[in-house]
């Protein structure tokens, strides 16, 4: 699953004036022809920088995203669900491995990325800073957060960077199971006893506000954004992704007789666009900057895993080992 909502802010490499104009033209022509960029190709600093940032955040989201769902492994109702939940969580951690490697091909090592995650320098999807209070919360995450992730990942798989596209194709294939599994779990609760329905509705009420922020705030259409879209780094605007998600999933929520906790949510038939209460972007900013219900716990768990495993890694390290970036 993926935390979308990349906020592409300007960087000091923003200035394309410093790039070699001939190489830049060749690079842009290659993308315009529909060819992928591979790791050894010349690329503008801005392209490299934004891709590292985006793929790294995606990887962190996978590894941290495994934690709220992992919360319920020990108490999953029934053995089959426990096995399925474990398989899903294992997939997410596997996705992180694929993505860290894709980011590495651009020149940032996995050591640097993990350090930046633990020290709060790199972000991950903000939704994972919220707790999974009940089994039903975990079902809502499996279904709707993964659904949002798939919207994002399908778009990004068509991007211009070869290693990221290859990783995403593999990831999207696995996500098909996640989505069905999550939907099945939600349907089971929603069509079950009154208590089960109450639980799943309560979980939906808790998760709806974070879900609406999942794709990030509306993009400011700057020349910067236009450049990243031309280079096929950013494949769709945050609002486009949000609209697509609402189009696909609100009817599926409603058909179960569940209520979406937003009285203003409706599709405007004239514009074809969904209207909704604007998410609380102040809360979004506050939580992403560290002040959410689970930020400290998520990072503490990651940090402890790294610290307590360090001696094993040191013991296994071959003294003649030499680091080489993954090839593709």
């Amino acid at each position: 699953m993926y935390g979308g909502g990349n906020v592409f802010e300007a960087t000091k490499f923003d200035d394309l004036q410093t790039e070699d104009p001939v190489k830049l033209a060749e690079f842009e022509a290659r993308i315009a022809r529909g060819e992928k960029i591979e790791p050894n190709d010349w690329m503008p600093q801005l392209y490299r920088k934004q891709l590292i940032r985006m793929i790294e955040q995606h990887a962190h989201s996978e590894i941290i995203g495994a934690l709220p769902e992992g919360t319920w492994i020990t108490r999953a109702p029934g053995f089959r669900r426990k096995m399925a939940q474990m398989a899903k969580v294992q997939d997410e951690v596997g996705h992180a491995q694929l993505l860290y490697s894709a980011a590495e091909t651009l020149g940032k090592t996995r050591e640097q990325m993990l350090t930046d995650l633990i020290n709060g320098k790199s972000k991950y999807s903000n939704v994972f800073n919220y707790p999974a209070f009940t089994w039903a919360d975990s079902n809502i995450i499996s279904w709707l957060i993964d659904a949002g992730a798939i919207v994002n990942q399908m778009a990004n798989a068509k991007g211009s960077y070869g290693p990221y596209s290859r990783a995403l194709e593999r990831i999207c294939a696995e996500e098909a199971f996640h989505l069905k599994y999550g939907h099945d779990a939600v349907v089971h609760m929603a069509t079950g006893t009154p208590k089960q329905r109450e639980m799943i509705q309560a979980a939906l009420n808790r998760w709806w506000p974070p879900i609406m922020t999942f794709f990030g705030p509306s993009d400011k259409m700057s020349t910067h954004t236009e450049t990243l879209m031309r280079w096929k780094v950013k494949m769709a605007s945050n609002d486009e992704c949000r609209q697509q998600f609402l189009d696909m999933y609100v009817p599926k929520i409603w058909e179960l007789g569940l209520t979406v906790p937003d009285p203003n949510l409706k599709k405007n038939m004239e514009t074809g666009q969904w209207e909704y209460t604007e998410p609380d972007w102040d809360e979004f900013k506050r939580v992403i900057n560290g002040d959410g219900p689970c930020n400290a716990e998520r990072l503490a768990v990651r940090r402890t895993a790294e610290e307590r495993g360090a001696w094993v890694r040191r013991a296994l390290l071959n003294p003649k080992a030499k680091y080489v970036r993954p090839l593709a």
């Binding site: 090592t109 050591e111 993990l114 940090r303 080992a321 080489v324």
Partner: peptide, 20 residues
């Protein structure tokens, strides 16, 4: 796990994550 803010970790050493 201890509660509260944890101090920043030292940057992970090279090859902490092994070869590829």
């Amino acid at each position: 796990l201890p509660e509260g803010e944890a101090p920043a970790i030292e940057p992970k050493p090279e090859l902490d994550q092994f070869e590829t």
